[in-house]
Design a binder for these strands. Structure first.
Length: 903
RNA sequence: GGGAGUAUAGCUCAGCUGGUUCAGAGCGCCUGCCUUACAAGCAGGAGGUCACUGGUUCGAACCCUGUUACUCCCACCA
C-alpha cells in the first residue's frame, strides 16, 4: 500500500481515539497490579479548553500512559467543578440578556435555570480533552455537585461542625453594593483612582462628662474654637459617622499630649477616645488615623483589639442608613460631597490635597467595593494546617519543583481560618437550619431537613418551620475532598475502590492554587484518610504569549487549542507544549513550536514509509549491518536510562527531548542511513527484523508523548507486509497502549565511544567535501595515524565508507604527501588530495589548532605543578589531568609534525 | 510593605556532588544541496566576559558578600 509523503493526523487521531474507547483501554478496575492514580484538577463545568488545560492535561496523560505501559493499573479520573462564583455569574448574565433579573427569581427558579445551563454547556471541555488524546477513565466522570459528591460535602460539613472545627463568626467581606453580594478577594480588582485626601479637625473634648452629653451639647462644644484639635487625614469623610476612635502611634511625640484624651468627631459630635497603636504609620498624612471599625478591615481589627464600638452606617445598596443622621438615604458618594461642604462651612477642614490611591472595584459590576461586616461560616485551620505542613516538610509529599515548599510553608505558618460561606445560590447549600426559641435563634446543623426537624423536636421541643441558611459553601470546600470523594471514600470509607486507588500518585496543577486547593486536599486527606492524598505534586508553569503576557480572553492572545490541534495534530501540539515546559517554569507559547511537533510526526511517518518499502532478500547479514544494529541497541539502552532518570525527577521536557533526538538523530539520521539498502536492492532478513523491532520499541518510548502517531506506526510495523492479518490484528485488541515500556539494560560504552570516533571521521570527511565543493558522489580515501587505541574505529570501517562515500581506509605511520588533515581526539586523519590543498589555509588552520592545544597543555601543567592541587584533589581527578596532559602532548607533536611537513 | 525566585548563545532552557577538551541542547540564523523515506527534508557552519562586584578555593557558570534588573506570591496604607 502506498503511503502519502505527508503525515495527516486528522483521520488517524480520530480513528485511534475511538479504537481505544471501543476497546475500553482507559478503564480501570481494582486488581492485583500496583495502582497508579491521578485525579484531574476539575475544570469549570461550563468552561472551554484553554492553553493552560492543554499543558496540564498533556502532562497528566504522559504520566498515565507511561505508568500503564509499565504494567501499573493506571486510573485517571476525570470530572468537572461546579465553580459557584463563575458559573453563577454566567447564569446571571445569561438571564440578564433574556431580560430576567436574578432578584426577581426564587432560589429554586434560579437553580432550575442554572442546572439547565449546566446540562447544556457542561462537559464541553471533557469532550475537548478527548481530542487531545486524554486517556481518562470516562466511566468514572464525576461532578462536584453530583449526588455522591454533594452528599460527601454535606457529611464533611456536619462532621467538622460536630467536631467543633466549624463555627459561625462575623467578618469583614468585600461587599458589592450593586450586585448585593459579597465577593471573594480574588474578584476584587484594585484600580488607580484620583481622589482627594481630606484633612479634618477633631477637637479635644476637655470636659470628661461630654461623652455622656447629647449631641446638641457636643456640637456646642465643637464650635468653641479656642480648644485644641488634632488633624486627621482621610479619603472617605462620609464614613466619619461610623468613627469610634482616633488612633496615633504610641511613640509619636506630636501627640503625647493627647494620651488618654477624647476628641469630637467633626460634624457628628460623637466623643471618641484617642487610642495608641503601632499600626499607625507616622509618616502618612498627619500620623493620625480615624477608626471606623464597621467599614475598614484594619479599623475593624483595631476595633476588636481595643473593644471599640462598631457602627454600620451603610445600607446594602451603598446608601447611608439611619446612623447617617441628616445624610440618611443619600448615596455614599453624594454624601461625601455633602458632608465636606458642611464641614467646610463649619470650619472643620484644615486642607484638601489631591491624592491617588488604589480602590477596589468589583470585577463583575465595577462598583466600588464596600468593606462590610457580616456573619460567615469558618473552618478552624490550626490543627489541619499543622499536619498538612508536616507531610510536606518531611517529603511524604514531594513538590516538583521543590521551591514551592517555601511558598507552602509560609502560607501555612500564617494561616487564617477559612471562610467557607458564600452569598450565592449555585453550590452546596449550607446544611444549617435556624429556629426561634423563646426569642433566641438556635442553630441546627444536620445532614438534611428531616434530620434537622427531628433534632428541633428532640432538643427544643420545636415543631414549627425551620429556616435554612441562605448561603452556599465555597467551591474549594468540595474540591478539597476530590481525591477521596471520587472513590466515595467519605460516605463509604472502607470501600474497595478507595482502599485501592487512594492515595493517588501524582497531582498535576498550576502553582496559583497551591493554597486554595493543594494545601486543603492535604488537610482533608489527613483528616479523613489519615493519609496524604498524593505522593507528588507537579506544578506546571503558566502559559504565556510570546511577549510574556498571561493568556487571557481580554487580551485575545490565547490561541484556540482546538484550532491548533486541527492545524498541527494533537501529537504536534502536545509535543510543542512539553518541549518548552520544564516543571514550574512559565511557558512562553509560540505556535512555531507546535510546528516542530508536527514535523516530528512527519519524520516518523517517513521513516515508516522507508522501511515499508524495503524488499527482503536471501543474503546473509553484512558485517556493517550487524554493527549498525548492535550500535543502535546500545544507544537505545543508553537513552532509555536517561529517560528513566528524567521521569524519576519529573523532567518531562528533558525526557521528551532525549526521545526526540534518539528517534530523529540516532535512528533516522544515523541508523537508517547505515542499513538503508541501495536503490533497488533488498535488505537481509536479520537486519530487517531488527529494524522493525527497534522502530517498534521507539514508538513505545514515544507513545506517552505522542499517542496517536505512535499507535498508527506501531500497528503498521506489526502488520507490515501482512495485509491479510491486519484485520485480525486490530480485532485482537492489540494496542501500543498495553505493550510493555522498554526498560534500561546494560550497554557497551566502548562501542558507543567507538561510534563517536567514526562519526567524527565521517563529519570530517563531509566537511572537507562541503568546504571544497566536492560532489558527494566522488569517492575519497582516508588514512589515519592512531597513537592511541582509544580512537580506533575498525568496527565501523564499513559504515564510514558507506556514509562518507570513502573508498578505502588505511592506517599509516606517516602523513601522506598532499593531503588535507583533521584530528579526532589524538588521531590524525588525512584525505589525500594533492590538487586541492591550499597550503596557506592548511597552515593557518594547523597553527590555530596548535596554539589552542598549547594553551590547553599549559593550563593542565599549571594545575599539575601546583602542589596543593596534587595534594588536595582526589586521585581520579589528578589521573584525568595526567591523561589530558598526555593527549595534549601527543596532539601538539602531531600538529608540529604536520606544520613542518607543510612548510 | 513582607516573602520567594530568576539572570548562561538571537529565543526557550539544561548544566546534578565545585574537577573530563566545560561552556551544552532544541529552535532560529548562515552556507551548500529538490542525493529515490521525508525541503515539514539532508549535509556542514557561525554564535556566549555564564548580569555586575568582591570573596572562599589548588581550581568557580556552580559556594559566600554586596549591587543591578526582572518575575511570582501574599498583604495593602488611611
Amino acid at each position: 500500500m502506498e503511503l502519502a509523503s505527508k503525515y495527516d493526523p486528522r483521520a488517524i487521531e480520530e480513528k485511534w481515539y475511538q479504537f481505544w474507547l471501543d476497546k475500553k483501554l482507559f478503564h480501570s478496575e481494582p486488581d492485583n497490579r500496583v495502582p497508579y492514580t491521578i485525579v484531574i484538577p476539575p475544570p469549570n463545568v461550563t468552561g472551554v479548553l484553554h492553553m493552560g488545560h492543554m499543558l496540564n492535561n498533556t502532562i497528566q496523560d504522559v504520566l498515565v500512559r507511561r505508568a500503564r505501559m509499565q504494567g501499573k493499573n493506571a486510573c485517571w479520573v476525570p470530572g468537572t467543578d461546579h465553580a459557584s462564583i463563575a458559573t453563577e455569574a454566567k447564569v446571571v448574565k445569561m438571564l440578564a440578556e433574556k431580560g430576567i433579573d436574578k432578584r426577581s427569581l426564587s432560589r429554586d427558579e434560579f437553580l432550575k435555570y442554572a442546572w439547565e445551563w449546566k446540562e447544556q454547556y457542561g462537559g464541553i471541555i471533557l469532550k475537548q480533552l478527548r481530542k487531545l488524546g486524554a486517556s481518562c477513565d470516562w466511566d468514572r466522570t464525576a461532578f462536584t455537585m453530583d449526588d455522591v459528591r454533594y452528599e460527601s460535602v454535606i457529611r464533611v460539613f456536619v462532621d467538622l461542625y460536630n467536631k467543633g472545627l466549624i463555627y459561625r463568626g462575623v467578618r469583614m467581606v468585600n461587599w458589592d453594593p450593586q450586585a448585593l453580594t459579597a465577593v471573594s478577594d480574588e474578584e476584587v480588582v484594585y484600580k488607580e483612582s484620583h481622589g482627594k485626601l481630606f484633612y479634618l479637625r477633631y477637637y479635644v473634648a476637655d470636659n470628661e462628662t461630654s461623652s455622656h452629653q447629647d449631641s446638641e451639647t457636643a456640637r456646642s462644644l465643637e464650635v468653641s474654637k479656642s480648644q485644641k484639635y488634632i488633624v486627621v487625614a482621610t479619603t472617605r469623610p462620609e464614613t466619619i459617622m461610623g468613627d469610634t476612635a482616633v488612633c496615633v502611634h504610641p511613640e509619636d511625640e506630636r501627640y503625647q499630649w493627647l494620651r488618654g484624651k477624647k476628641v469630637i468627631v467633626p460634624g457628628v459630635g460623637r466623643v471618641v477616645p484617642i487610642i495608641m497603636d503601632e499600626y499607625v504609620d507616622r509618616e502618612f498624612g498627619t500620623g493620625a488615623l480615624k477608626i471606623t471599625p464597621a467599614h475598614d478591615i484594619n479599623d475593624y481589627n483595631l476595633g476588636m483589639k481595643y473593644g471599640l464600638e462598631s457602627i454600620d452606617i451603610f445600607n446594602d445598596n451603598g446608601t447611608l442608613n439611619e446612623h447617617g443622621g441628616k445624610y440618611a438615604g443619600m448615596d455614599r458618594f453624594a454624601c461625601r460631597k455633602a458632608i465636606m461642604k458642611d464641614l467646610e462651612e463649619a470650619g472643620l477642614v484644615e486642607k484638601t490635597e489631591d491624592y491617588t490611591n488604589k480602590v477596589g472595584h468589583s470585577e463583575r459590576t465595577d462598583a466600588v467595593i464596600e468593606p462590610k461586616l457580616s456573619a460567615q461560616w469558618f473552618l478552624k485551620m490550626e490543627g489541619l494546617a499543622k499536619k498538612a505542613l508536616e507531610v510536606v516538610e518531611d517529603d511524604t509529599i514531594r513538590f516538583h519543583p521543590a521551591k514551592f515548599k517555601n511558598t507552602y510553608r509560609h502560607w501555612l505558618e500564617n494561616i487564617k481560618d477559612w471562610c467557607i460561606s458564600r452569598q450565592l445560590w449555585w453550590g452546596h447549600r449550607i446544611p444549617a437550619w435556624y429556629l426561634d426559641v423563646n426569642g433566641r435563634v438556635e442553630t441546627i446543623v444536620a445532614h438534611n431537613e428531616d434530620e434537622a426537624k427531628k433534632i428541633a423536636t428532640e432538643k427544643y421541643n420545636y415543631t414549627g418551620a425551620l429556616r435554612q441558611d441562605e448561603d452556599v459553601l465555597d467551591t474549594w470546600f468540595s474540591s478539597w475532598l476530590w481525591p477521596i470523594s471520587l472513590f466515595d471514600g467519605i460516605r463509604n470509607p472502607d470501600n474497595p475502590e478507595i482502599n485501592y486507588y487512594y492515595p493517588t500518585a501524582d497531582l498535576i496543577t498550576a502553582p496559583d492554587i497551591i493554597f486554595f486547593w493543594v494545601a486543603r486536599m492535604i488537610m482533608a486527606g489527613e483528616e479523613y484518610r489519615k493519609d496524604v492524598p498524593f505522593k507528588n505534586v507537579y506544578f506546571t508553569g503558566i502559559v504565556r504569549d510570546k511577549l510574556g503576557r498571561k493568556m487571557s480572553k481580554q487580551l485575545g492572545n490565547s490561541p484556540d487549542p482546538i484550532e491548533l490541534m486541527e492545524k498541527y495534530g494533537a501529537d504536534g501540539v502536545r509535543m510543542g507544549m512539553l518541549l518548552t515546559a520544564p516543571a514550574g517554569n512559565d511557558l512562553p507559547f509560540d505556535e512555531a513550536i507546535c510546528e516542530q511537533g508536527r514535523n516530528f510526526s512527519n519524520k516518523l511517518w517517513n521513516a515508516l514509509r522507508l522501511v515499508s518499502g524495503w524488499q527482503i532478500g536471501d543474503a546473509q547479514q553484512s558485517a556493517e549491518n550487524a554493527v549498525a544494529v548492535q550500535w543502535m541497541e546500545q544507544r537505545m539502552a543508553q537513552v532509555i536510562e536517561e529517560i528513566e532518570k528524567d521521569f524519576d525527577q519529573y523532567r518531562l521536557s528533558e525526557a521528551l527531548m532525549a526521545s526526540y533526538k534518539l528517534a530523529w538523530d540516532d535512528f533516522c539520521s544515523w541508523y537508517l542511513e547505515m542499513v538503508k539498502p541501495a536503490y533497488g536492492t533488498p535488505i537481509d532478513r536479520e537486519t530487517y527484523d531488527a529494524t522493525i523491532s527497534i522502530f517498534s520499541r521507539l514508538m513505545l518510548l514515544l507513545h506517552p508523548f505522542m499517542p496517536f502517531v505512535t499507535e498508527e506506526i506501531w500497528h503498521a510495523l506489526q502488520t507490515i507486509g501482512k495485509d491479510d492479518e491486519k484485520a485480525a490484528f486490530i480485532n485482537a485488541n492489540f494496542s501500543i497502549m498495553n505493550q510493555h515500556m522498554p526498560t534500561s539494560v546494560f550497554y557497551d560504552q566502548r562501542m558507543l565511544d567507538e561510534f563517536d570516533t567514526a562519526r567524527e571521521v565521517i563529519a570530517g570527511v563531509r566537511n572537507i567535501r562541503n568546504t571544497r565543493n566536492l560532489s558527494p558522489k566522488e569517492a575519497l580515501e582516508v588514512s589515519f595515524i592512531a597513537v592511541d587505541d582509544r580512537y580506533r574505529f575498525a568496527n565501523f570501517n564499513g559504515i564510514v565508507q558507506k556514509l562518507a562515500n570513502v573508498s578505502a581506509i588505511n592506517e599509516v605511520k606517516e602523513k601522506p604527501a598532499g593531503a588535507i588533515s583533521f584530528m579526532v581526539g589524538t588521531m590524525e586523519c588525512f584525505v589525500p588530495m594533492p590538487e586541492n590543498v591550499n597550503k596557506d589555509e592548511e597552515l593557518k588552520k594547523l597553527q590555530d589548532e596548535l596554539k589552542y592545544a598549547e594553551g590547553f597543555l599549559n593550563s593542565v601543567l599549571k594545575k599539575l605543578s601546583n602542589e596543593k592541587f596534587v595534594g588536595g584533589a582526589p586521585a581520579a581527578v589528578i589521573e584525568k589531568e595526567r591523561n589530558k596532559q598526555r593527549d595534549a602532548e601527543t596532539k601538539i607533536a602531531a600538529l608540529k609534525a604536520q606544520i613542518a611537513a607543510l612548510s
